[in-house]
Amino acid sequence: MAHPIMFDEGDPILARLREICLGMPGADEKTSHGRPNFFTTKVFAVYGGVVKGDHDPEPHRRAVLVLTDPHSRAALLERERFFLPGYYGPSGWVGLDLARPGEPLLPDIDWIEVAELVDASYRMTAPARLVRELDARG
């Protein structure tokens, strides 16, 4: 049974996240388990998530999930908009809510922080040649 699509193609938050993710060397997008996944040989970002024990897609529908290094993970999880995502959390991932239910569709998102988180996750998952290509861009 196929997973239902859990995102809106016209979502402006997803559009901006796509620009960031697909701007990485060799990056591509596929829909997996109903959500946009950004990857090279491995996934480095996912749009939307859930928390363990709660499969309601709405609370974290507009979140980005990224892999973090162990040193920054604990500090990120102490911040209000970060959460431990179901399925991904035990493997070192965190979620960042970009908009919550009831908030305006384009809240005050720190896109520089989002880009830095995506960059760090990309560097931990992409092949070394793609990371070198990213570094060569400056």
Score class of each variant (00 low, 15 high):
109 I>Y: 14
14 L>Q: 11
41 T>R: 14
110 D>G: 14
75 A>M: 11
82 F>R: 14
85 P>G: 03
55 H>M: 08
12 P>Y: 09
54 D>V: 00
100 R>H: 08
41 T>K: 10
102 G>I: 12
117 L>F: 11
43 V>S: 12
79 R>K: 15
41 T>H: 10
121 S>N: 04
24 M>I: 01
67 L>S: 09
110 D>H: 14
86 G>P: 06
106 L>Q: 13
55 H>T: 00
13 I>M: 07
85 P>W: 06
135 D>I: 00
80 E>V: 11
43 V>E: 12
2 A>S: 11
42 K>A: 03
56 D>H: 06
10 G>Y: 02
96 L>G: 05
131 V>K: 05
27 A>L: 04
74 A>C: 08
58 E>R: 15
17 L>A: 10
69 D>K: 01
103 E>Q: 15
111 W>Y: 02
71 H>R: 13
88 Y>G: 08
4 P>M: 02
42 K>F: 00
61 R>C: 01
104 P>G: 07
30 K>P: 01
72 S>P: 04
55 H>F: 06
15 A>V: 07
118 V>Y: 03
77 L>R: 12
117 L>G: 04
65 L>F: 06
12 P>I: 11
129 R>S: 11
120 A>Y: 03
2 A>L: 09
7 F>P: 04
27 A>N: 06
93 W>G: 11
67 L>K: 15
2 A>D: 01
37 N>A: 10
65 L>Q: 11
19 E>H: 02
121 S>A: 05
35 R>S: 07
86 G>R: 12
85 P>L: 01
39 F>A: 11
104 P>I: 09
23 G>A: 03
56 D>F: 04
15 A>H: 10
30 K>M: 03
25 P>N: 09
2 A>R: 13
40 T>K: 06
44 F>N: 07
133 E>Q: 13
37 N>H: 15
33 H>G: 07
105 L>S: 13
86 G>L: 09
1 M>T: 07
49 G>N: 08
120 A>D: 13
68 T>H: 05
89 G>N: 09
114 V>N: 06
113 E>Y: 09
103 E>V: 10
89 G>K: 12
105 L>Y: 06
78 E>W: 00
126 A>R: 04
9 E>G: 15
123 R>K: 10
25 P>S: 09
35 R>K: 12
89 G>F: 07
85 P>A: 06
49 G>F: 01
90 P>H: 12
43 V>W: 10
128 A>P: 10
66 V>I: 15
115 A>R: 10
38 F>G: 03
128 A>S: 13
131 V>F: 01
62 R>C: 00
52 K>C: 04
25 P>T: 07
57 P>D: 06
32 S>T: 12
17 L>E: 14
121 S>I: 05
80 E>S: 14
117 L>W: 13
51 V>T: 14
5 I>W: 07
40 T>H: 06
134 L>R: 08
28 D>Q: 05
127 P>Y: 04
50 V>F: 14
7 F>C: 05
127 P>D: 13
50 V>R: 15
82 F>I: 00
66 V>N: 13
137 R>E: 14
70 P>R: 10
102 G>H: 02
19 E>Q: 13
21 C>M: 02
1 M>D: 00
48 G>P: 05
